[in-house]
Design a protein around this nucleic acid. Sequence first.
DNA 1: TAGATTGTTAATCGATTAACAATC
DNA 2: TAGATTGTTAATCGATTAACAATC
Lengths: 206, 206
Amino acid sequence: MKSQKISEAVVRRLPIYLRFLNELAMKNIMTVSSQDLGHKLDLNPAQIRKDLAYFGEFGKKGIGYDVAYLIEKIRQILKLDRQLQVALVGAGNLGRALCNYNTYLRNDMKIVAVFDAMPQKTGETINNLTVQPMSEMKETLARLGVRIGIITVPAAEAQNVANQFVEAGIEAILNFAPVIIKVPGEVRVHHADFTTELQSLAYYLD
Amino acid sequence: MKSQKISEAVVRRLPIYLRFLNELAMKNIMTVSSQDLGHKLDLNPAQIRKDLAYFGEFGKKGIGYDVAYLIEKIRQILKLDRQLQVALVGAGNLGRALCNYNTYLRNDMKIVAVFDAMPQKTGETINNLTVQPMSEMKETLARLGVRIGIITVPAAEAQNVANQFVEAGIEAILNFAPVIIKVPGEVRVHHADFTTELQSLAYYLD
DNA sequence: TAGATTGTTAATCGATTAACAATC
DNA sequence: TAGATTGTTAATCGATTAACAATC
């Protein structure tokens, strides 16, 4: 049961479960059923039970899931039970906006370093962070133990930044630039591209 | 062949094809094969051919696809062959960043109105647009023919904004707030949530 | 013509959903 | 006990990939 490979679809739903469970916890709700979850999140209850069952037996038959316990378990699964350090490259509008989400990321993750290739940007302050030049990246990431990188530079520079991330030992990248970037197999890349997202929405207009 | 329902996965790939085709066009490359496309976009060539074949016979056997013609066809499919008007609610950092993407969206789409519920924000200028109060939304959207809405408000207000969008006749919504919003079946919602994206990335760390 | 590449069918693979025994 | 809900198997559904005849 441990050595099954978990599909990407499952992994993408876990943070959604986690977020809703946190809401329940804040309302002092102690227990939740897969049916409740499914109803709120527009998902099939069987799917939710199956997703969770990949990782263990977290529920009680006839009762449901203990909210606090399930939160703890999902945080462990997602490796959010320690604080993960994140670096961001590209101190433009989008980069600045994301840095302000630090509060949202709570204790799970934290953007701890910001870089930009343009000399006129370095030295600027964003949310208590000083924008550093690219030349300092490798050393800073090693020192701070950064494992995750965010790319918010223009499309033309994204691949270059990705290469530097890989060189600096980054293990996972979230790319906001509207271009597919290539990295070695051991590095994980997710694309978060707002323009393609909007364009696919347009398809559903009548 | 016309009445097949197209899967979401297919629709999400079309903008990626389009973006790469535009790059080719800018390099004056006239023709491309599914193999070339697949190699560049990390997709299976058979999948690309199948995706396109849902909508018509756009290629030439032995030759490949004419870049300009395929661009034209995909733009038609995605309804990007007219300019689509977009409205945004939430003039915070993220909203401001997205407004600056207007140049990126080219002729396909354009953010033409920005709203915010906070009185101190209204009247501010973002990229030639004046932030308007929510009370003006319905009238403005009707006047400008806006069909797509973007939500960049805090999670607690997102559902409320969505309701107002629906009320104002919006047909598709891109929601950046970290919460699942509910809308009537005829309205399309995509979620573009940066925090869940980051959290699912963390799973893949060793 | 020979080589290349499409469009499409069939085969495979994977994900979702239904159903139900186990059990709280 | 009766009612509820899990964990899990089996059934269904859908998406991806392979293969190849058609043809430029």
